[in-house]
């Protein structure tokens, strides 16, 4: 039986203008007695797991960073991380967090066209961030800092690379949300997909300044 199929005797009269997607499913509790959607709770649990993953990686970084008297270690003393470019890149990523928030506000006001525009801009900023990160990595690899070149390179690529993988995942998720928005799947009363994507995106954005301060500036 399909999810939207009404059960005999439980169907309610509907006005012709009512959109089928705006109508809550028969498996869902009414909005007024449902304090938090299952999707939102699920994304919070996922973010809890992500926080534990990154805390483990940051913990490993702290052991190496504080366990060495000189940082970078003497074997990598000539390698300079591109702090200025990454600082500008950080600004792009923070801006993408703001544009994503604007996308959510747009769909809350039922402005579907604005939602598409803000999602497109957010995705473009995410891709720009990844592009700049990629070019920085290429430059660092050319200068001799690789994953196997020592503990400095190893922890740098694992920590920053893990965040980059999360940004890639967030961009892919954003593309799916954008396609759904173009198909008219979201409205002011039904936009949980946009909401949980926004929560994930803002988590990825909020994590980056901490990693930047820890790895590039400390």
């Amino acid at each position: 039986m399909s999810r939207e199929t009404p059960v005999e005797g439980t169907s309610r009269p509907e006005s012709p203008s009512e959109n089928a997607r705006d109508r809550p499913s028969r498996y869902e509790l009414p909005q007024d007695i449902r304090p938090m959607s299952n999707a939102r709770l699920g994304i919070l649990v996922l973010l809890g797991a992500e926080m534990m993953l990154f805390s483990g990686l940051i913990g490993a970084f702290l052991v190496f960073r504080m366990g060495n008297i000189t940082w970078p270690p003497p074997s990598h003393i000539d390698i300079q991380l591109p702090r200025a470019v990454t600082g500008i890149n950080t600004a792009f990523l923070l801006l993408s967090g703001w544009t994503m928030f604007q996308a959510l506000r747009a769909i809350q006001k039922d402005q579907v066209k604005q939602l598409r525009n803000w999602l497109l801009l957010t995705g473009a900023l995410g891709v720009l961030f990844l592009g700049i990160q990629g070019s920085e990595w290429a430059q660092l690899i050319r200068s001799g800092m690789t994953l196997q070149s020592g503990v400095y390179g190893g922890i740098f690529y694992v920590l920053i690379g893990c965040h980059a993988v999360h940004v890639i995942g967030a961009v892919m998720w954003l593309v799916i949300v954008l396609v759904m928005a173009m198909a008219g799947r979201f409205s002011a009363s039904r936009h949980v997909g946009v909401e949980i994507c926004t929560i994930y995106w803002i988590f990825v954005v909020a994590l980056w300044p901490m990693l930047y301060a820890l790895v590039y500036l400390a």
Binding site: G48, S55, I58, A60, G67, I69
Partner: peptide, 29 residues
Amino acid sequence: EPIGRGFNSSIFFMMAMPFTVVALIGGSV
């Protein structure tokens, strides 16, 4: 020793994280 300080900071940081996660989820709910 520096490595002792590093391990100490790392342990305390990771010890604080489960409480942060539980507080975040619980606070949001």
